[in-house]
Structures are given as structure tokens and as C-alpha cells.
């Protein structure tokens, strides 16, 4: 199969990760995946107010996903939408399992994800950035989380759909994955696929997450070498 941008079916777009881009934040990162650009900033842990929101035995990981108004062709209206609220929630679920939240009872760890430019795969880019930003903040973690999406076009399983592929695919399945625990922490799907194909697509995603994981670690080491 020939892809629009000449990639192999199991190849993701050029990935660039830069750690420590927001001096005010406790931890931060920028992830570029092709033309998609996400930044993440981590603030905390700090006391969670109002008090009734606190959990007595662990911290709350609060994620807020926002798209810049100019990030897409048609301007995005500022303020939360149903879509951004859902993505914020699944992002928090994707990241929480790897964070030692029990070390910070009654606190909140704020993770802000802003999409600067959108061109497919913004939630996965946001998770990749947020995971690295949490580590950059020095928050104790069991592992990093890597994230990517894949689908099926014709008879082929295709990684990291972009451009017209997003319409051509039979399904779009994003995942987030913790390689050390071999656990999937985010899984969503839109489309129409038999169960065997779903499994293949997830396996393709997992392989790619293992590679992204290496890039995340390299970026962190780059930031913290001396």
C-alpha cells in the first residue's frame, strides 16, 4: 500500500520530543508528531482545594486538554467542549496508573495539555507529552506511558493515520501503553472491525508504543544530563 506521505504501514510520522519548555511549570514537554504539536505542563502536587474534592489516601491527577483557537483550519471556539472534556478524562485515566498517587494524599497534580497545531492524533501526542512532563516534574512514577493510534485501510493494518487516511480507515483505535507493566491504559475505537482485526491493530499500536517509549526516555535523559 502506498501512503500519502510515503511512510510504511507500520511507520509513524517524524516524532520530536523536547523536555523542559515551560520555565514556570514543575515539569513540561513538547511533542511534535508530524504536523501535530502538543505541549504539556505539570503543576503540583499541591493541596487540592476546595477541600471536599480531596482524597484522603491519594492525590488526584487532574488533566485538562485544550486546543488553541488557531490550531485547526476552522477556528476552535475557546472554552471547554464535550470532546475536550472527554479527552481530558481519558487522558487522566491513561496516566494515573503509572503515578504513585498514594504518596501525595489530599493533593492534586495538575496536567495541562494544550494543542498548538492539530493534524491528527492530538490526544495521543498530548499523552506522550504529559507522561514525559510528569517525569520531568520529578513525580514518582512506575513507568512512562506511550500513546499512538492505528486503523485498517483495505487489507492492511495502518499505523498513525493522518490526512485522508482518517476518512479511508475502517476504524481508528488509539491506545496508551505502559511498557514495563505491559498494560493498556487507554483504549478507544471508532469504526467497524471484526474482533480479530481489533487485536491486530492493538498489537501494531503496542509495537509502536515501545519505540515511542525509547524516544521519551532519550528526551528525558537529554534534559537531565548534568
Amino acid at each position: 500500500m502506498k501512503r500519502e506521505d510515503g511512510r510504511a504501514v507500520d511507520e509513524y510520522r517524524p516524532l520530536e520530543i523536547k523536555v523542559g519548555i515551560i520555565p514556570n511549570a514543575n515539569g513540561s514537554a513538547m511533542v511534535k508528531m508530524g504536523k501535530t504539536v502538543a505541549i504539556a505542563g505539570v503543576y503540583g502536587p499541591v493541596e487540592f482545594l476546595p477541600k471536599h474534592k480531596q482524597l484522603s489516601d491519594r492525590a488526584v491527577l487532574r488533566c485538562i486538554y485544550t486546543m488553541a483557537p488557531f490550531s485547526t483550519e476552522d477556528r476552535v471556539r475557546p472554552g471547554p467542549s464535550r470532546r475536550s472534556t472527554e479527552i481530558s478524562m481519558v487522558t487522566a485515566n491513561a496516566l494515573s496508573p503509572v503515578v504513585f498517587l498514594e504518596e501525595f494524599p489530599t493533593s492534586v497534580i495538575n496536567v495541562f495539555i494544550n494543542i498548538i497545531q492539530a493534524n491528527a492524533g492530538t490526544r495521543t501526542a498530548g499523552i506522550n507529552a504529559a507522561s514525559v512532563a510528569l517525569a520531568d516534574a520529578g513525580i514518582p512514577m512506575r513507568d512512562l506511558v506511550a500513546s499512538i493510534a492505528a486503523g485498517k485501510i483495505g487489507d492492511e493494518y495502518v499505523l498513525d493515520l493522518a490526512g485522508k487516511e482518517e476518512e479511508a480507515t475502517k476504524a481508528d483505535i488509539p491506545i496508551a501503553y505502559s511498557p514495563r507493566a505491559k498494560q493498556i491504559t487507554l483504549l478507544q475505537m471508532d469504526g467497524d472491525l471484526p474482533p480479530a482485526d481489533v487485536k491486530k491493530v492493538i498489537e501494531l499500536n503496542i509495537k509502536a508504543c515501545e519505540k515511542i517509549y525509547e524516544t521519551q526516555k532519550t528526551a528525558l535523559k537529554e534534559r537531565w544530563k548534568k
Binding site: 515551560i22 488553541a68 483557537p69 488557531f70 490550531s71 476552522d74
Partner: peptide, 26 residues
């Protein structure tokens, strides 16, 4: 022009202050 999806854009840093402005036309 750091933002391709905007009709015009700019990133300005003044010391540690860092902003991106995008212009969209509709």
C-alpha cells in the same frame, strides 16, 4: 509563522515570557 493552520502567526519571546499568536479568518 510557526502555525501552518493559521492564516498568519508569530511566536514572541521576551525574556522568559513566551507567547504564540495565530490569526484565523472566517
Amino acid at each position: 509563522n510557526p502555525i501552518e493552520n493559521a492564516e498568519g502567526s508569530a511566536r514572541v519571546k521576551i525574556g522568559e515570557t513566551d507567547v504564540i499568536v495565530g490569526v484565523k479568518l472566517g
